[in-house]
Amino acid sequence: MPGPRLPLAALAATGSALLVRRALRRRIGASPLWPLPALEEPVSGRPRSRALRLLVTRHERIADGVVLLRLEGAALPGWEPGAHLDLVLPSGRVRSYSLCGDPADRTAYTVAVRLVADGRGGSREAHELLRAGSEVEVRGPRNRFPLADAPEHLLVAGGIGITPLLPMLRALDAAGTPWRLLYRGRGRASMPFLDEIGRLDAGRGRVTVSDGPGRPPLEALFRDIAPGTAVQVCGPAGLMDAVARALPAGCAPHRERFTASVEPGGEDTEFEVELRRSGRTVRVPADSTALAAVRAVLPDTPYSCEQGFCGTCRQRVLEGRVDHRDTLLTDAERAGSMLLCVSRARGGRLALDL
């Protein structure tokens, strides 16, 4: 008779990737063993996160137009609330999704994906092709939206923007840190995780769910914010801008965007990019991007949103002045790096550590 089945975490602790893969194969009926995780080459003088091949073990519709994907492996890199993961979809498209599972679970990553009917096709691939039993390459995790250190927290989510905030809520609740949540959506049927959020609230009045017409003005909801409260906002650009306007003076939100808000730059002119480590130089036409020019000769150069808000295509600048057009990088980060997908050169030439 077969022996007792160990949980995946226990198998992972044995150090045997083969045992974990076989356990996952039995669980979902997948036939092939997926490749061992591989390390990517260093980028811009710093190690890049590992690229991993993970197995989709759960594909579940959790709200109208939203599917939850559980991606399992062994001894996965750790992460903290606010982190996101890059998924390399079957077409080769790369899309970033916030992690919404348990950071303590080193055997799986969990993301939730909303179908964008008029999008560029990434969300449709995630919905239709990443079924239980399929494999997917992931990169990361990365965190550009960490949970702020503060005595109290106000979290504001718009639709699928709840995904990075959910692990924050769990962490704050476990630590006994005061928090409130405003969760807005078009309708409750399209708003994922309402049941879990209700359990976290447990009738204590910390959650305001606002859907459909007749929403109360944000100013009324934010009137009693205590000094020092950290405000974390994720959702459509319109909601985040409205929150920033409605907050009391001196209270600035920490934001994560799911759509771009690229800052205007100078005139789009042709420029030259030297790829110092590769010994190549490429021309960037006025009607194209540095990312496209670089990927023409270095096709493995990472990218995702192509709109200047995710940070995946960030590279170190060795020489030249950058016309920064993103809304992600801080002034300190801009001093030595750029996002290839939207930013350009001031002065006609840049040198990158590529």
Rank of each mutant, 00 (worst) to 15 (best):
P7I: 04
L11N: 06
A12H: 04
V20G: 05
R22Q: 09
L24A: 11
L24H: 11
R26M: 08
S31H: 12
P37Q: 04
P47L: 15
S49C: 10
A51D: 04
R53C: 15
L55P: 13
V56R: 10
L68I: 03
L69H: 01
R70M: 05
E72R: 08
A75E: 14
G92E: 03
R95F: 03
R95E: 01
R95Q: 11
Y97D: 14
L99A: 05
A104N: 06
T107F: 07
R120V: 08
R120G: 06
G121S: 01
S123N: 03
A126K: 07
A126G: 08
E128Q: 13
R131F: 00
A132T: 15
E135D: 14
G140K: 10
P141A: 10
P141H: 02
F145N: 11
A148L: 14
D149M: 11
H153P: 07
H153F: 00
V156K: 03
V156Y: 12
A157C: 12
G161I: 03
L165E: 14
P178A: 00
G185K: 09
S190Y: 02
M191F: 10
A202R: 13
G205F: 12
P216G: 08
F222C: 15
R223Q: 07
V233Y: 12
G235D: 04
P236Q: 00
A242W: 09
V243Y: 02
L247I: 07
L247C: 06
P248M: 12
P248H: 07
C251N: 04
A252C: 10
R255Q: 15
E256K: 01
F258I: 10
P264A: 02
E267M: 10
L275C: 10
R277M: 01
V282D: 06
C310G: 07
L318M: 01
E333T: 04
G347T: 02
G348W: 02
L350D: 10
A351N: 06
